[in-house]
Design a protein around this nucleic acid. Structure first.
Lengths: 236, 236
DNA sequence: TGTTGTCAAGAGCAGTGCTCTCTCAACCCC
DNA sequence: GGGGTTGAGAGAGCACTGCTCTTGACAACA
């Protein structure tokens, strides 16, 4: 039973799936992932709820499709920033990538929360999400790897690496396909999680009393963390 | 109509409230915040759902009470770590605090997600949560301030501070009541958001292919970020 | 001994995810 | 072109949710 994608039924089907995802995305932006309702999506399409189950077996499956789209969106943003600054120095490139990711997150906070906030309880990310999820961090690591290749990054080891950490970093290195030694890889990961930590802290309202100029504060912290990423921190 | 807290009715009431929160907490651990159901809580207490509404006006109000408890819990953990290491050097103290917070988060991931994950959509944190929410970060800043007072922290300015950032940092400084200059305050905030970023990234499953020894990896990254916090990064 | 205030129960409303059966039109193939 | 196949959608229904309102009972107080 090979599915011929040119048959009118199949075409109508992919069309319908797109419509459903579109409506679901609109709803997601308004009410967030918890509020995503299959019935509401069906209503918006002028269709009865059970009809949607022809296309998505469950609410979770629909949510998964949206999550993949969101991972791809932020992945494209990160890759775009990396590509647009190709050939420039690493500081400029990393800064551009970080700014791009944050701008994207600020513009669609619900999307950001969907992938980098708490996972929906009871929801186990299926395998299909793994590779889209890696796009953004891989773009970030790629920028760093380019910087290393250009000799712009300090690679002198600043801290001892325990054996299990070394092994895990090796796994990451080969999985990501980037040529970064333990020192720089750990630094890059710290820069990436630090970036997400900052964005989450800002977006989820934890800075709301104190900081007023979020952009300026982010720029300031980004400048520091970029310098640390490139030159390394103090020796431990 | 002053509420006399000694009258048997009032006592029974606070008792009941405690029972409800207890049952809700149990449920929270199992199913997470989205799955928290007033009816299920009522069932567990052998009571009809409407009875719960005598004590909490809405599901959100119950959730808020739980959130405050969780903030207080992590706040107590952080303060406890700070107190237990009082008088020691800042590196040891910061490390202990960070470890304590992460251990707590790993032990109760749902609690962590409740306060540091995506905010429940449509849920606006009421004022009552603000002060408990500040306990943990204030404990962290306190440790740094002690280190500065002991002359253990490098305070040399490493990066220029834009005017709006300076103003916001001043607000934070006076709001937090800690005597930290712009340089160290920004560094401490970066260390704090970086810590939460690492914990979130780990807890929400983004490290799951690659890292196997989460404890060792955390220790490694913590050692780096602690050194940066204390000695400062490169000059920007 | 009333009176008052509080509590719990129960019914009910509108919504949810999801399943099942049914109908009917569109498609595909001979 | 006609007839069998398939799949889309409708609709009813189940078990659940948050929340509201009314009603009856009991305990605390004057």
């Amino acid at each position: 039973m090979p599915i011929d994608p040119t048959t009118p039924r199949a075409l109508a089907r992919v069309e319908r799936i797109a419509e459903i995802k579109e409506a679901a995305r609109r709803q997601l932006v308004e009410v967030g992932s918890d509020g995503l309702s299959l019935r509401a999506v069906a209503r918006e399409l002028g269709v009865v709820s059970s009809a949607v189950y022809r296309y998505f077996a469950s609410r979770d499956e629909l949510l998964t499709a949206l999550i993949i789209d969101v991972y791809d969106a932020v992945g494209a943003v990160a890759e775009g920033a990396a590509a647009a600054t190709s050939g420039r120095r690493i500081g400029e490139r990393w800064t551009a990538l970080a700014r791009a990711v944050r701008s994207w997150a600020v513009a669609q906070p619900h999307d950001y929360a969907l992938i980098y906030g708490s996972p929906v309880p009871g929801y186990r990310a299926p395998e299909d999400t793994v590779s889209p999820a890696l796009r953004a961090p891989l773009a970030a690591l790629g920028v760093v790897a380019d910087g290393v290749a250009a000799g712009e990054v300090g690679t002198e080891r600043r801290s001892p690496v325990a054996r299990p950490v070394h092994a895990d970093l090796a796994t990451l290195r080969s999985g990501a396909g980037v040529d970064l030694d333990d020192e720089v890889l750990a630094r890059a990961l710290a820069a990436w999680t630090g970036l997400l930590g900052h964005i989450s802290y800002e977006l989820f309202g934890h800075l709301h009393n104190g900081i007023t100029d979020y952009d300026a504060f982010f720029e300031h912290q980004l400048a520091r963390s970029t310098a640390i990423l490139i030159e390394g921190g103090p020796t431990v």
